[in-house]
Amino acid sequence: MTSNHSILFEQDEPSSEQKDLVEISKKVCVEEINAILKEKKHQIATALKVCAHCTLCADSCFLYRSKEKVAEHMPSHKFITSIGVIYKKKGKVTMEELYEMRETLWKRCVLCTRCSCPLGINIPELLAIGRRILRSQGVYHSYSEN
């Protein structure tokens, strides 16, 4: 019985891509996102205003230094393309966009808080806010795949 059950279970279990497709068709709750944005408004607005797009934070991220030195691994690129986009669109983002941001916020950052910005922007905090917004919509990195 148990073996049968496990076979059935394995067959019924959708692959991660299928799961993502189902998830993408869901609707984003703008009010929920805006509630978090409102709470953290000062942090996000100040950071986006202050960031001079100077790219001096790139070398402070160990992922940038150890992986291919591509823009996607630069701390400022990470927060501008995730939380920056959500803030500028006032929470009106699509599920697809949130799934793209998931890659940035989980796979390209481990929230080690090593990165530093000469202007004093707290980049990890912004990325953590981004993760919180994504989690509120049920979008997060799943560790169960392997």
Partner: peptide, 8 residues
């Protein structure tokens, strides 16, 4: 510089 271009 490509890095700078990416966020300009």
């Amino acid at each position: 510089v490509p890095l700078v271009k990416s966020i300009t």
